[in-house]
Amino acid sequence: MLAEFLFRRVFYSCIALLGLVVAVFLLARLTGDPSVLYLPDTATAVMREQFREAHGYNDPIVVQLGRYVWNALHLDFGMSLRQNVPAMDAVLQAFPWTLRLAGVTVLLAMIVAMTIGPLAAYRPGSIFDRIASVLSLAAASTPDFWLAILGILVFAVHLGVLPTSGTGGFAYWILPIGVLMFKITGTTTQVVRGSMISSLASPYVKAARAKGMPENRIIFLHALRNSVISAVTVAGDQTRGLINGAVIVESVFGWPGVGKLMIDAITQRDFAVVQAAVLVTAACIFLLNIILDLIYAALDPRIDLH
């Protein structure tokens, strides 16, 4: 059953990914002269014609599509015109940076949410709970680029304790992770809190209390275990926010990840890199969703996959 589930999910994801590749292709080709996308505005008509010939843009669409898909399957998205390396290489080099940033952020966010959430849920309406809710609300309403800039202003410019951008030692991680964490932690905490409130009100918790189980055990063993399941359910939505946030955080803090690569490629009109970055990210998202489904199934014994 597990193999069947995995196979089905991977299959559908591949189809979706393929669809995405085709969609990008169509978007790029059908909206006019593709050389506009690749070459800078200063390119002359002759250069554009040469470019088109060299890359086969004058061939029939179907042939182009076939070639494009074939290349995509080999992870060949062309050359980055700025950096003179294959676009894919540029993406693969930037990828680990984003992974590190996102990974640490998610880990910290989960830890914070699983600590504050249950405590807030235990006494709903208490001062602690209300402060936590207000902070979460503020976090959900704050534009992350503004927060990033404010962070730089306060900590780097005025207080001088943290660097403004780039990578390096531990200090370089603090602001980027802090800003990225803010919104995610807020949302996740609220989700865990909501789920804990209903867990704590459920009949099995009442039964556990009647069994004489101490409060700590009830909160962290009986109720939280059930709430983790719903936290994982929304984790999928959270990854979207994470990626959006990562793009901005990387741009503002000069973090050499895929997000910064993408934005730079846009300003530099480096379409090959833009394509590669977007498609690789999409593939990762699909993969992540599959992993989340597996985690979810592993956590909830009522789901029969094995």
């Binding site: 990008v24 978007l27 990854t239 979207r240 926010g241 990626i243 959006n244 793009v247 901005i248 993408m262 846009i266 833009v274 394509q275 977007v278 990210t281 999409a282 998202i285």
Partner: peptide, 8 residues
Amino acid sequence: PSLLLAVI
């Protein structure tokens, strides 16, 4: 992610 879609 909406940003990715918007980007491209």
